[in-house]
Design a protein around this nucleic acid. Structure first.
Length: 579
RNA sequence: GGACCUGUGGUGCAGCUCGGAGUGCACGCCGCCCUGUCAAGGCGGAGGUCGCGGGUUCAAAUCCCGUCAGGUCCGCCA
């Protein structure tokens, strides 16, 4: 490791940087006692650790230091005696001798061992995160994250983008995710909200003439947490004017591929695109995991006039599970339960054996149907075929979920398969009032070929919105925005948003658009997810310094907590008693 | 709001099916020994409301009910 900023007034270099070129030199290093090995009153070995690694100091047995003491050790860099070199240590050929040991800080025994081999419960790690962060893995992950941030920032600047910061205290614009609310002290009874994303701000920057904007932005959403979702997360937020979807793909690809190259040493090839409709049809999801095959096969034609009740549905789809004939009955039952929990009426399974199909349903099939199932996706003896019959979308989604349950490795495993998903539908069904709901957000530009469908067949309207997907995780999404008032008002009316409501919710944006809005489009990349996959982690907490638990608490600080009576009074709040 | 998994000295586990004394293992911690270790070694020691509450039972870490915490997922995430 080379680091030109190692030297300080207290130390000359980092522990891991001590090497053969310094033999005979008198140097000082600072760090934590990683290990102490005693050999009687005249000899002990100390492993001193800092972020760069460890170096061995040879000291007198009387030096009274314990694990995790913080020391400054001044010693002579010496070649280790023959036969005592440690090949597994970067600094294993040298050691510090004739040491002067200064205790900068004593330490109690830590609540868990700071050792890569030790598996420690995450609950304990999070309570003592500051100790956990000393572990090599956390050091690596957060430094990897810093590299990704720096690379993304550099790539955007190189492409002429200007970094602009936008407010954290924003106006409520109820739509989509729940917002975190911040009470105003100077305006009692009124509230700011923390932004779900800088969406509207960055569109206003386009009106403001910043034709290429980016920001590494914190976003906040008060929704339930998951392995890939925290309340607060970080996006590479991008918006540009006078561009098409393809321009956005080029800008974002450049940044993401730069980051991949920076951390893996290899630049992935160009990112392919797939339409939303194809992703649903072949993989049963809008974020297909392309690391493995098992695509969905359509058998609707075969079963169009079937007498098998279970398959009497508009759509019959199947997947082949290679080698799945070995699945036990209890595993098949579990898959069936899983399918039902996803809304399927049932799940039909067929083991492909040398004697034909093995299944409770086999005897109800005619020869044509049996042959079709035995031929799904070039099935062979020893395979399993799963069949779902339902409405089209439901059948696709259920099989898509089963495909993941059976076939998907952990997200960070194996190759990295990026794909752009395009042409999402503009609307995704109806809300409780019978109004259409935006699939992305209400400023998404419809596909220009589908404008006429907005009033006649809105659910078939494709949009100019797109996602970036990596190994089955949604890395980000974006769209071409509406900049024409006439189209925007048609969308609002389709969404059941009247003129008054539109004005009260988005008035400042619509107002801005009256003063010359350039055509613009944008994107946002979820940095936590990107870094997690780069780091080989399956949850984003491992790449966040101080994450929250799934129930949204911080085990270290105890947040969320009560505030003082004084704070409540100043904010003119009244707290309802706990139920 | 729901489903499932986990909870046993400081840490990680076993013990739970089939109830019988807080039983065991590894690491750490404390003390002693040890002049070339590096996951050091040897000897000795301390350390537990078995997450919490209730029930069944002569007897509960173990069975039942509830609850709390952590995790994975569904709902939710424009």
């Amino acid at each position: 490791m080379t680091d030109t900023y190692e030297s300080t007034s207290m130390r000359d270099l980092l522990c891991g940087s001590v090497d053969l070129t310094m033999i005979g030199e008198r140097i000082s290093v600072c760090g934590w006692v990683a290990k102490r090995r005693e050999h009687g009153e005249h000899l002990a070995f100390l492993d001193l650790r800092d972020r760069s690694g460890v170096v061995q100091a040879v000291v007198d047995g009387s030096v009274d230091v314990r694990g995790e003491y913080v020391l400054r050790v001044t010693g002579t860099v010496s070649l280790r005696p023959e036969g005592t070199v440690n090949e597994r240590l970067g600094t294993g050929e040298v050691e510090l001798t004739d040491c002067r040991v200064e205790i900068l800080s004593a330490a109690e025994a830590p609540p868990f061992q700071i050792d890569e081999r030790a598996e420690v419960d995450e609950q304990v790690r999070l309570k003592y995160r500051y100790i956990d962060l000393r572990r090599d893995k956390m050091q690596r992950n957060l430094r990897l994250r810093a590299t990704v941030n720096a690379t993304l920032r550099h790539a955007m600047e190189r492409q002429g983008f200007c970094e602009v910061e936008t407010p954290l205290l924003w106006a409520p614009t109820p739509e989509g995710a729940r917002e975190f609310v911040v009470p105003s002290r100077l305006h009692p009874g009124e509230f700011y909200v923390l932004p779900q994303s800088p969406q509207i701000a960055k569109q206003l920057l386009m009106v403001g003439g910043f034709d290429r904007y980016f920001q590494i932005a914190r976003c906040l959403r008060d929704e339930d947490l998951r392995a890939d979702r925290q309340f607060e997360f970080t996006q590479l937020d991008v918006e540009a004017s006078f561009v098409s979807q393809d321009d956005i793909f080029a800008f974002v690809s450049e940044a993401v591929l730069d980051a991949a190259e920076a951390v893996t040493g290899q630049r992935p090839g160009p990112i392919a695109t797939m339409t939303w409709a194809e992703a649903l049809d072949r993989f049963g999801t809008d974020k297909p995991d392309l690391r493995f095959a098992m695509s969905l096969q359509d058998l609707s034609g075969v079963f169009a006039a079937t007498e098998v009740k279970a398959f009497a549905a508009p759509t019959v789809k199947a997947i082949r599970v290679p080698g799945g004939a070995e699945f036990t009955r209890s595993r098949l039952d579990a898959l069936t339960d899983h399918a039902k929990s996803l809304g399927a009426k049932g799940l039909a399974w067929f083991r492909i054996t040398s004697e034909g199909l093995d299944s409770p349903l086999a005897r109800f099939l005619n020869a044509h149907e049996s042959a079709a199932i035995a031929a799904v996706d070039h099935a062979q003896v020893g395979d399993l075929v799963l069949v779902v019959a339902d409405e089209y979308v439901a059948a696709c989604k259920v099989l898509g979920a089963l495909r993941l349950t059976i076939g998907a490795p952990p997200v960070s495993e194996g190759p990295h398969h990026y794909v752009w998903i395009t042409e999402f539908p503009l609307f995704e069904g109806l809300d409780d009032n019978g109004d259409l709901v935006s699939a992305h957000h209400p400023f998404t530009m419809p596909h220009l070929d589908d404008l006429d469908l907005i009033e006649t067949d809105p659910l078939r309207v494709r949009s100019q919105s797109y996602d970036l997907v990596l190994n089955g995780w949604e890395l980000g999404s974006g769209s071409v925005r509406i900049h024409r008032a006439d189209i925007q008002s048609r969308i609002f009316s389709a969404l059941g948003i009247g003129e008054d409501e539109a004005h009260s919710r988005f008035g400042f944006l619509l107002g801005a658009f009256r003063y010359g809005a350039p055509p613009h489009a944008g994107f946002a990349v979820g940095i936590d997810r990107l870094v997690a996959i780069f780091a080989g982690e399956d949850n984003i907490r491992e790449v966040i310094a101080f994450p929250k638990t799934q129930s949204g608490t911080d085990l270290m600080t105890g947040a969320p907590k009560d505030i003082t009576e004084r704070q409540i009074r100043d904010l003119r709040l009244r707290v309802a008693p706990k139920v």
